[in-house]
Design a protein around this nucleic acid. Structure first.
Lengths: 359, 359
DNA sequence: TTGTAAGCGTTATCAC
DNA sequence: GTGATAACGCTTACAA
């Protein structure tokens, strides 16, 4: 009785309650019911094909009967795997993110993973904290428009699979929307409408994407013989756009791109509040094509981002790295697309060139 | 060498990697560095005050030096606690949720908890699955506008603290916005503007809140001598609002409430597209005051919900139940408030009564 | 106040 | 193919 060698391990007492107040069933319960060893149950339930067909079904039946659910923590302890992916966004209030979130979320549950969401509220510091915390409990991480430094991101990526959205970092997987296509179309359109001076209301200084957008606008403008200037700015919100209105009016530009739709909407409304007519006096364009960008009067012209795809492919990358190891860190080109609505029109300063669209 | 009695437990090999590829430090490392027993480290780090001040600081220093981070899974295993709260929303794309999400999220991190978000995409089935899954890994759950049956919710609540938002379920904690105040103000205003027939474009059939809104509109209308009718509807989205346009035009109502702002916007735009003037021909009101509801022309009049507070107090409740046990299931009255904008005006059918607002 | 040791529910490595 | 058994990293009686 006191000699324990070869005895059945004592039945551990579960910590989780069930509906009726009972303890949650464990693989020990299944083992008992199916008349096999707990380790066999574990094999049957987690590594298919390593157990005889007969016992496999016996075990599955028992599990079903007991309404068994694996204990994620117990599983995570020896394996380190949680079937959970983290996603950090800078501002959950920005509608641009919710398609990214939904994309990543549905892609995750399709592969039987769970998405964990965190918000950094536009702060690099908070973002690093959130990322570190998350990294401890997830299998991989997606950083959407991160404000972190390259070094911090690389550091995070050295621990677990990390994929960044709308940014590139050396040696780190990334998914970006291509900018080029949409901007080229937009500039072509604006030039045809007689615009010669373009302004860009920038987003946050540390935003890779804001930089990128400005650079391609600048490059494309030069190439087309248009002049382009930046209006420095602050927060990428409706309010941020409002605050850029004065600077925009002081410049020469007749057409202005904003870092994102939120800013474009803010700029437009502030200008309108001051009696400025859009698009007669200024043409305004945003980026992303968020919810609500077509609610305004005039509805906003914008360069549409493949938000949903950004989310799904980012998640796909994380999972890929997870089981194939560090990948090629490809940078897929997800196309942007010009969506012409009412906030763009002919330049007030110059006659439209050949091929201009009708008013 | 082979006799193990009384020997120091063998150092377990960690499973998590660190920056340089090293293993993550455990309490064993700290113990070694501080010259104490691992259990003392555990006490020092998790139950403050149960260790001498001197060893406490020695341990904290060691922890800091090693850059120690608790392993959440290892901790969760014996305790069952994860310091994580789940939040399930029906549609992450609905801006009404993001203030709830942010409210709950900030309240959570303020108390050093993490919020885990899931979406049910308006499906009761998916919602139950998501809720069950979540419940296994979180300490408590918040259900925002759940589509679940009362029975399902009670069943979930019997396992761990559950709080519902904008709904009541017997014996389950709940937080709702009061409807009454906002609706009363709105109806008073409409009556003063000469409106006599009111319509309500309903939300999803299973939505408790849609029911509630209709009931108070009906009751208040009767009380004021106005007639009120429902327009049945489907999805609580912009599109759902659009589809209600025909039915609205066929009725006698001159003022129409919609279950939420999304539907109100859809209805308004569809009507406008058909050449109907808002507010001259119809007055339109939404509920919630979401992002974008002031972008429209005319801007939407709406009954504002305390979204952020809904989120924070719901989270507060969960935490309260968590450490004080099942609470009184109070139903806090979070006030709604009428926000008058341009989508409401005098009735086209009747002269405004005394005290009508100016156009 | 601190050390000892037994779990928590899995997975993984052995034997057989 | 299946059964023992030792981790995984932490908490928590119980002793000392």
């Amino acid at each position: 009785m006191s000699e324990s060698t070869g005895m059945q391990a004592p039945r551990p007492r579960s910590t989780r309650r069930m509906a009726g107040g009972k303890q949650a069933p464990t693989i020990y319960d299944i083992a008992e019911l199916a008349g096999v060893n707990p380790s066999t149950v574990s094999r049957a339930l987690s590594t298919p094909g390593r157990v005889s067909a007969k016992t496999q079904t016996r075990i599955e039946d028992a599990a079903r009967k007991l309404n068994y659910q694996v204990n994620a923590f117990a599983r995570a302890l020896p394996t380190g795997r949680t079937r959970t992916i983290g996603l950090i966004v800078s501002d959950i209030t920005n509608p641009a993110y919710f398609d990214i979130i939904r994309g990543a979320g549905t892609a995750a549950s399709a592969r039987d993973y769970t998405l964990m969401l965190a918000e950094s509220t536009e702060s690099a510091e908070l973002e690093l904290t959130a990322a570190r915390r998350m990294l401890a409990t997830v299998d991989g991480l997606i950083l959407a428009s991160p404000r972190l430094s390259d070094a911090d991101i690389s550091q995070l990526a050295s621990q677990k699979p990390v994929v960044v959205i709308n940014r590139t970092v050396d040696g780190v997987g990334s998914v970006v929307a291509d900018t080029e296509a949409g901007v080229a179309d937009a500039l072509r359109h604006l030039a045809a409408m007689g615009h010669r001076h373009i302004a860009y209301v920038a987003g946050p200084e540390r935003s890779w994407m804001s930089q990128r957008r400005w650079e391609t606008i600048k490059a494309r403008s030069d190439w087309s013989g248009l002049s382009a200037t930046v209006v420095a700015s602050g927060v990428p919100t409706v309010d941020g756009g409002r605050r850029a209105a004065a600077a925009v009016r002081e410049g020469f530009a007749t057409a202005v791109f904003c870092y994102n739709d939120l800013m474009a909407i803010g700029l437009m409304r502030e200008l309108q509040a001051a009696g400025v007519n859009i698009p007669d006096e200024f043409s305004i364009l945003g980026f992303d094509n968020i919810f609500g960008s077509d609610f305004t009067t005039p509805p906003l012209s914008t360069i549409k981002s493949p938000l949903h795809e950004l989310g799904t492919t980012a998640l796909g990358y994380v999972l890929e790295e997870l089981d194939k190891g560090p990948g090629p860190h490809r940078l897929p080109v997800l196309r942007t697309e010009l969506v012409l609505r009412g906030s763009t029109g002919p330049s007030p300063r110059q006659a439209p060139g050949p091929g201009a669209a009708t008013a």
